[in-house]
């Protein structure tokens, strides 16, 4: 019996050592902040003054239990539904108010998290990550595996709302990581950038569609890298942690993105939520320098496209396969 316990203790020790070895973020983005932080890292730094943990789940979920010191900014406020039925980032003023109220300062290290069961969860965090970047805030990370991994590991949760002083952050839109309809339309007609569709293949191909999206298929010429493929979600009940960097690079090459890191890539999906996760991977994990998110995405494209086509029943293989 003692021996078993001893054995277990050794196992545990080894695991702790291993865990702490991987706890430091493995890579660092251009701005110097790692795009991903592990649950271990966050557990150690959750009380740091500079760290602001942002829970983007619903109010109800936040109220029930959240990571200690986390503040609540529901994703529905970062990408609210507009009167025209689109989901787009609100104006600078509104976001500044939202961020300041949450106690975020100019030099805060923001760590966003959502649930971590599915790609839909992970992409909520991914899109929130993109929105902070798009608003000019460089020091932002996403919690890998989200709240699911945190609780799976038996870490402390609370329903206590932290008392934070109003912050001094100012949201300022960075146009270099936004693509609008006109830019997308220009690429459709003249090329000059890679269009990437982050939805699942069934929607991309046009076999099915989301009910509120008016058209089947994808923006002509777009290649498909489903955000689903980027995480482990759904495989043996794993939480939605991102796959290894080398696998992610293989996938990006395998769907047809050139290895030149200066390639301009415009990512979209139905609402820009899934696209946020692809953005995080392409820009800050793999180092593609010119990645933009088309915030209006398919919902807007179908409405504004006019005479521009939609491509259906096609993988946009272009040029055709050559041996």
């Amino acid at each position: 019996m003692h021996k078993i316990i001893q054995g277990n203790m050794i196992c545990l020790l080894v695991m702790v050592v291993l865990a702490s070895a991987v706890s430091s973020p493995g890579w660092v983005s251009a701005a110097g902040t790692a795009p991903l932080v592990s649950t271990d890292w966050l557990d150690k730094h959750k009380s740091d003054k500079a760290v602001v943990i942002v829970d983007v789940r619903s109010d109800a979920n936040y109220g029930f239990a959240h990571i200690p010191n986390a503040v609540s900014i529901p994703y529905t406020e970062l990408e609210p539904k507009s009167t025209t039925g689109l989901f787009v980032v609100p104006g600078e003023k509104k976001l500044t108010e939202l961020f300041q109220k949450a106690g975020i300062n100019k030099n805060s290290h923001v760590v966003v998290y959502a649930h971590g069961n599915t790609v839909s969860d992970a992409s909520k965090a991914g899109a929130s990550y993109w929105i902070f970047k798009a608003m000019g805030h460089k020091k932002v990370s996403m919690l890998n595996g989200g709240f699911t991994k945190w609780t799976f590991e038996g870490r402390v949760v609370t329903n206590k709302v932290p008392n934070r002083k109003r912050g001094n952050i100012v949201a300022k839109k960075d146009p270099s990581i936004f693509a609008d309809f006109h830019e997308v339309a220009r690429v459709v007609q003249k090329g000059g950038a890679i269009l990437m569709d982050a939805r699942n293949s069934v929607q991309y191909f046009g076999h099915e569609k989301r009910a509120d999206v008016p058209c089947y298929g994808h923006i002509p010429g777009a290649i498909n890298l489903p955000a689903d493929f980027l995480t482990h979600a759904g495989i043996n009940r794993a939480p939605a942690t991102l796959k290894e960097k080398k696998d992610l690079q293989r996938m990006v090459t395998g769907v047809g993105v050139p290895s030149t890191k200066s390639t301009t890539i415009i990512v979209y999906c139905n609402t820009a939520q899934l696209a946020g996760l692809n953005y995080l991977v392409l820009k800050d994990m793999l180092g593609y320098r010119n990645v933009k998110v088309y915030d209006g995405s398919m919902l807007e494209y179908c409405k504004l496209k006019g005479k521009l086509p939609v491509e259906i029943f096609s993988w946009s293989i272009n040029p055709p396969k050559k041996l």
Binding site: N224, F229, R250, M251, T253, G254, V255, W315, K321
Partner: peptide, 13 residues
Amino acid sequence: ITRYSWGWNDYRN
């Protein structure tokens, strides 16, 4: 057998 790619890109890359 190739993983993590669409087959039509296998030879191109």
